[in-house]
Design a protein around this nucleic acid. Structure first.
Lengths: 129, 129
DNA sequence: TTGATTGCAAAGACTTTGCAACCGT
DNA sequence: ACGGTTGCAAAGTCTTTGCAATCAA
């Protein structure tokens, strides 16, 4: 009878990074942040850890880029993002309206079981305008 | 004084495909569809043509996958997508509510110039449920 | 003719896989 | 000790680039 996972240094540090960071991150960014703090983890390990955290539902993948995968901690409060097309900074935002009604309507109309949605706003941040 | 572009067979066929197809497509899908019709275009040409059509604003890139790029014709009517996580089929949908007010509010609150947004619904289509 | 366009090969960016060594529990 | 975890190298997938040949206007 053994636990199905272990708390290794790599895992602990990546978990902490996601806990403290409120920003979505890519595998490369995680690698860089850890390296800055003198924590050297192989990129394969990062990818594998992302898979693990994804399966455990501790993080989720965003749909903001076709070139690389961005992840953020799975949080209670639902939110969206403001993404600067020029510098790439990402800011969290929340909606006043609620899309739940639209989802219910679409499910009925289209016979589709909606599990989640992704709403992202793109443009130019105050510094890049 | 010369035109800045030519109407070659490859371009003509890709343009037609986007005109007739209402579905978002990847470079690989375009290649396959053309090949089915005995039109053989190199994948490099497809990628270059996608760049060209993107610059000309004839197509736009979607934010539905981190693994590969999806494109669809730039249309008048604003719409979103219903994406099946299992089989990958994509269906167009339109919202009843309007996100313009939210965008204006966010622009004022966050000092951000929003140029566009992406709203995609994920789940299971009727066949995959 | 001329410059846009093409195919091919190679390179590049990002992610995944195989495998032996390692280490938490 | 067991089995999850790691690093390294290699492979895989998608996209871009260099270059000489080709073709539309």
């Amino acid at each position: 009878m053994n636990k199905d996972y272990r708390l290794t240094p790599a895992r602990k540090n990546i978990l902490e990074l996601f806990s403290y960071s409120c920003k979505p991150m890519t595998a490369q960014q995680i690698l860089s942040y850890l390296a800055k703090n003198k924590i050297f983890v192989n990129k394969t390990t990062i990818y594998r850890e992302l898979d693990f955290l994804l399966k455990k539902d501790f993080i989720k993948e965003l749909h903001i880029s076709s070139g690389r995968r961005y992840y953020e901690r799975t949080e209670q409060k639902h939110h969206h993002h403001l993404i600067c097309k020029k510098c790439g900074t990402i800011e969290d935002v929340t909606l006043i309206q609620n899309l739940a009604k639209e989802e219910k309507r679409l499910e009925l109309e289209k016979d589709f079981k909606i599990t989640d949605h992704s709403l992202e706003f793109f443009g130019l941040c105050v510094n890049c305008q």
